[in-house]
């Protein structure tokens, strides 16, 4: 939904910016310079302003990501249930460290803050799907379902 100039410049004209950024990032995998300048134009904002908003949020990547994003929780309740071993298992399966994307472009791997599944610790998300009560041995099976 492209706002009219009047809408974009109105008092709450920027309300659509975050949803628009999320939509773009969701469809294109990341916010490249082109989509950010496009949105900057639509909302009558300088590009650096749009870039500043994008880089603030964990779910708005500005660099290319893999087709699937693995987010493993590294906060206390998961840490207590040996999230470290799960992280180790993913590293071994994919051959990449947190912050990296696999060579075939299938997976990006990130460590994130609490995802609200601490009663099922250790937990992770792949894209929007939650996986709880993880074991290092169970990781390969889960990753295979995304092959």
């Amino acid at each position: 939904m492209v706002p009219s100039k009047k809408e974009a410049l109105s008092e709450n004209g920027r309300a659509g910016l975050l949803p628009a950024l999320k939509d773009r990032a969701g469809r294109e995998g990341c916010l490249n310079r082109e989509s950010m300048s496009g949105l900057a134009g639509q909302y009558h904002l300088p590009l650096n302003e749009v870039y500043g908003v994008s880089t603030f949020y964990a779910f708005l990547p500005v660099l290319p990501t893999g087709k699937n994003i693995i987010r493993v929780c590294r906060c206390l309740p998961c840490h207590l249930k040996d999230a470290q071993a799960v992280i180790g298992s993913i590293k071994k399966e994919l051959g990449i460290a947190p912050g990296e994307t696999s060579g075939d472009g299938k997976f990006s791997f990130e460590l994130v803050s609490c995802i609200g599944a601490c009663d099922q610790a250790p937990a992770m998300m792949i894209n929007d799907k939650l996986y709880g009560d993880l074991t290092p041995a169970g990781i390969a099976e889960i990753l295979k379902s995304y092959a």
Binding site: L76, S113, G116, C118
Partner: peptide
């Protein structure tokens, strides 16, 4: 927004 570590009651 329930982001407090260890909180999942709102969910």
């Amino acid at each position: 927004d329930e982001g407090e570590v260890g909180t999942f009651k709102d969910k």
